[in-house]
Simulated scan of single mutants.
Amino acid sequence: MTAAEPEFLTAARTFYDAVAADYADRYGAALATATWDRAMLAAFAELVTTSGGGPVAELGCGPGRITGHLAALGLDVSGLDLSPRMVDLARAAHPEIPFRVGSLLDLPYGDGELAGIVAWYSIIHTPAGLLPQVFAEFHRTLSPGAPVVLAFQAGEGALRIEDPFGYPAALDFRRRQPAHIETLATEAGLTVTTRLVREPEPDERTPQAYLLAHKVT
């Protein structure tokens, strides 16, 4: 018998399937003015390239805005997202990039297959008790020494968003303490080398955190 899907996965898929088109319209060009986002992604891309390259995955790719940027930086990148509608939009926007539907809890990649992972605001819906499983999957699929970069809202608690863009859906956006995320990464066999927390922009509610780590060889 197939195990029942965790409730948070069902909620996240329903939420993002509902808002996919509006989300893509609103945030599709946001990277153009996101200086620190571009800086962290550029550092990640350079680390992958100078280490010899290889396949990179953006996990929680949404409509593919970050995935497309990574491809423009010269990376051999693919995208993964829980929402089939988001994946459809990503494929339409970037037909040259492979995208697939999947979950952070069970990544569809082989052991040591990836030369890098980008998890851009994709750990924010996972309950705290399941984060060790997510980081274990990161470690399993990364090749020795490969980098992973994460972005997330820094803080405590969760913000529940209901009826986004007028659609009948709801989802918890969980804030994370950078020190706790670093501890989980370390326990999973990843070494954090860069930490950055910036103050919120006028349209943001919380500080934003970035962590860059490597799989321990």
Rank of each mutant, 00 (worst) to 15 (best):
T33Y: 10
A34W: 03
W36A: 08
W36Y: 14
R38A: 15
A39I: 12
A42W: 11
A43P: 00
E46F: 13
L47V: 13
T49I: 14
S51T: 12
G53S: 08
G54E: 06
P55N: 06
A57H: 00
E58V: 15
E58W: 13
L59V: 13
G60A: 12
C61N: 09
C61D: 05
P63A: 13
P63S: 12
G64N: 06
G64S: 14
G64A: 07
R65Y: 14
T67I: 12
H69A: 15
L70H: 02
L70Y: 04
A71F: 06
G74S: 09
G74Y: 05
L75D: 10
L75N: 07
D76S: 14
D76F: 10
V77D: 00
L80W: 09
L80E: 07
D81T: 05
D81K: 01
D81S: 01
L82K: 03
L82F: 06
L82Y: 05
L82P: 11
P84I: 06
P84T: 07
P84C: 08
R85Y: 01
R85G: 03
M86E: 03
V87R: 09
D88R: 11
L89F: 03
A90L: 10
R91N: 02
H94C: 07
P95D: 05
P95G: 11
E96R: 13
F99W: 05
R100Q: 13
V101P: 01
L104S: 10
D106K: 12
D106Q: 14
D106V: 09
Y109M: 02
G110P: 08
G110Y: 13
D111A: 15
D111Y: 13
G112E: 06
A115I: 09
I117G: 00
V118T: 09
V118I: 11
W120T: 01
I124Y: 03
H125R: 15
H125D: 10
T126P: 10
T126W: 04
P127Y: 06
P127D: 04
A128K: 14
L130Q: 11
L131P: 03
L131E: 03
P132H: 08
P132F: 05
V134S: 04
E137F: 04
E137H: 07
E137W: 02
E137L: 03
E137A: 08
F138V: 04
T141Q: 09
L142M: 07
L142W: 03
L142S: 01
G145I: 08
V148Q: 03
V149W: 00
V149F: 08
A151E: 03
A151S: 12
Q153G: 14
A154C: 06
E156L: 14
E156R: 12
G157H: 02
G157L: 02
R160Y: 02
I161D: 06
I161V: 15
I161T: 15
D163F: 12
D163E: 14
G166Y: 12
